[in-house]
Design a binder for these strands. Structure first.
Lengths: 251, 251
DNA sequence: CGAGCCCTTGAAACTCGTCAATGATCGTGG
DNA sequence: CCACGATCATTGACGAGTTTCAAGGGCTCG
């Protein structure tokens, strides 16, 4: 058998880094992906207050969790990239306490809760989902530290390192470069700073020859230096050695 | 039967706000609390890198999750109050990516994973644990917004409102006042600011007659105004109406 | 070709951090 | 019971980092 998943299903690529699967597990995970829906950029998937019934899975593109404060300031609390579940919460909480939206054009799958419950009966899959949820939480903690303690320049360096590893884990990095379909304003709303300052700080990072960033294409010119500068330790992503080392499947 | 839990077990008081339990559920939850251990203030419970085998539950006092950056700056990412599990993660991740420590003197229970697995077989308890974990995550998101978007004064107002509701939910608030056994330095490390600035901002809040804070006793003088000022919306705590309204069991 | 979004720049104001020193409080031991 | 040291709270002065406001330029798309 040759599952699409093995080469192109980001959910499977991601979860395989946590847990070994049987062929049957892989088949079930792959069958989860039916009726992909195209969602254009900057469109809400779910809004705060909604009582959703399906679980959403991102298959391509960038989405985010966000809240908007009364003043109108948007706050991005997480990026959702291919292979990420948006809202496994649905099972136990009856109301969304934040919103989800696409940032770039996305392909999204809506999975009925019943399907998820079926999958949870397979121990390997249940464990993989569990780990994925914990890694999301660990990432949240790391973002909290990042925003709370680091100056803007290091903060961005840290984020760019994290995104490299996460995208690599699902085969979406090409060496030390990847597509980052976000505006400077999106990045600013993520890092808790103004877009003006984000612009200046990105210029600094470019000036120091740490990165290039044009047309939504990010190139990390010296990962080791960027990692050191942003004080990035990937332990919180709980990736296997294999996934850490992988160079992405590139072209 | 009259369980200790019904009146004094914070774990039960907290979980009852999420899910209704049978007598048998209550009994099992109450029996979880054996061999309480006194831990003095400012002592690590688990450290980053450890591979723990037990799950820890706080029964009294304040503890926290934290990381320390290379420069030596400590970063508090969560407060753990009576009724909170420290590390349900243990089941699936093999290494702590952060540390846990007491802030005040605490009573802590160490629960073997096997005991937890037993409890998870009871649907109501499993659901309550699940919800508690999701609320922890939602709280983390809210802290991220808080630190990322609000000026220092509002940030603190928000935190103080949150702690009021959380402590009420486990019967540890007395009307609009509660014990907050933290130093200004602890608070500063939590809110991503210097202790000098924390001091000045607390003075402002006191000057505006929003709070009093002496001898580790916090009094919220005008909750409605503090809530409004800190832009606090408790939806992310997913408390029932009952728990929201409760005035704490006070004296 | 124009509209709209995004990136870029400058200047001024402000929030907040750092440094350094002084008080206040508390537990401990003499 | 008081002296002591340690921890914690407070204050002032200064500077760095960051925001805000405002405006101009570039690119893309209809």
């Amino acid at each position: 058998m040759n599952f699409r998943g093995v080469v192109g299903n980001p959910l499977i690529e991601k979860l395989r880094a946590f847990v070994p699967f049987t062929e049957e597990d892989l088949r079930m995970l792959d069958e989860l992906v039916v009726a992909e829906r195209e969602v254009e950029a900057r469109t809400d998937i779910i809004q705060e207050g909604d009582k959703p019934s399906d679980v959403h899975l991102v298959m391509s593109g960038f989405a985010c969790r966000y809240k908007v404060l009364p003043g109108g300031k948007r706050n991005i609390m997480a990026y959702l990239i291919p292979g990420d579940f948006c809202d496994l919460h649905v099972f136990v909480l009856n109301e969304m306490d934040h919103s989800l939206a696409t940032l770039s054009p996305c392909r999204v799958v809506a999975i009925p809760r019943a399907r998820i419950l079926q999958l949870l009966e397979r121990p390997a899959i249940a464990k993989a989902f569990w780990i994925a949820a914990l890694v999301d939480e660990a990432t949240l903690r790391e973002w909290l530290v990042n925003i709370g303690s680091r100056p803007a320049e290091e903060r961005i360096a840290h984020l760019l390192c994290e995104m490299l590893l996460r995208l690599r884990a699902v085969g979406l990095a090409n060496g030390d470069r990847y597509e980052l379909p976000l505006t400077q304003n999106d990045l600013a709303d993520t890092m808790g700073m103004s877009s003006v300052h984000m612009n200046r700080v990105l210029q600094q990072l470019r000036g120091e020859k740490l990165i290039e960033f044009q047309q939504h294409n990010l190139v990390i010119l010296d990962f080791e230096r960027l990692r050191e500068f942003g004080n990035f330790n990937p332990n919180y992503l709980h990736l296997t050695q294999r996934a850490l080392a992988a160079n992405g499947n590139g072209v």
